[in-house]
Amino acid sequence: MAFSTIFGAWIAAFLTLGILSYLYRDNPFYKIAEHVFVGVSAAYWAATFYWTQIYPNLFGRLFPKDGPLAFIAEIDFNHDFNILYLFPLILGVMMLLSIFKQFNWMARWGIAYTVGIAAGLKAYGYLSSNVLSQISASAVDIFSGSLPLFSMSGDSVFNNIIILVGTISALMYFYFSREQTGSYGKFTRLGIYFLMISFGASFGFAVMGRISLLIGRFNDLILFSSPDYNYGTYWMMLFIVVILGFWSFQNPEKKEG
């Protein structure tokens, strides 16, 4: 196996164990790993966005091959010169200038543009897919007679009634302009019960998701502990445990209260 692969695995194991060391208590290894993450991810994102968007789609349209600005640079992505793309360039540069306090306000133009586009996109998208389609799907089959009365899986009259009643009662709970008392209050209480079941299911799924991510990390640590990687996980664990033990001894934990 190449040296860069083994070296990379040792670094990965060190950083993973450094983050996990936070479970013991906040410590220098965790802080180092955290700050490396902060630094590397900022540059990683900047590089990715530049080379996948700004370079081909902005500069590719402002400095195309044989374009009027080809004397400055030639970036050939088969685009034609489009002077309108000066607009996002200007807004983008204004955004960068806003890092200086006196030019703080300059970012507002770029933010305003993104807010406007996002608002226009989302208003229609959510109306069509999340409201109208969902209301249409709530018009369930109850009276046609083609469905069984009850089924644990699949459509049934009972299940469809539960879905209809549950959706309406839960939606009515979110209507706070009317006081939720009397029969109306009882109906919205039913809506709360459906919402609680939904939140409980979300909690169960959230736990499931987190455990899955932990399984992924442990799988990598187990892989890096193999002879192919020169037992990287074990060496890094030993290193961290010894240093951390010594550090804990020098910096005892402050008892609360």
Binding site: Q53, I54, L89, I111, T114
Partner: peptide, 12 residues
């Protein structure tokens, strides 16, 4: 343009 400005925001 939205994508380009979003990319500059990352740089910011």
């Amino acid at each position: 343009w939205y994508d380009i400005i979003a990319s500059f925001a990352i740089f910011l």
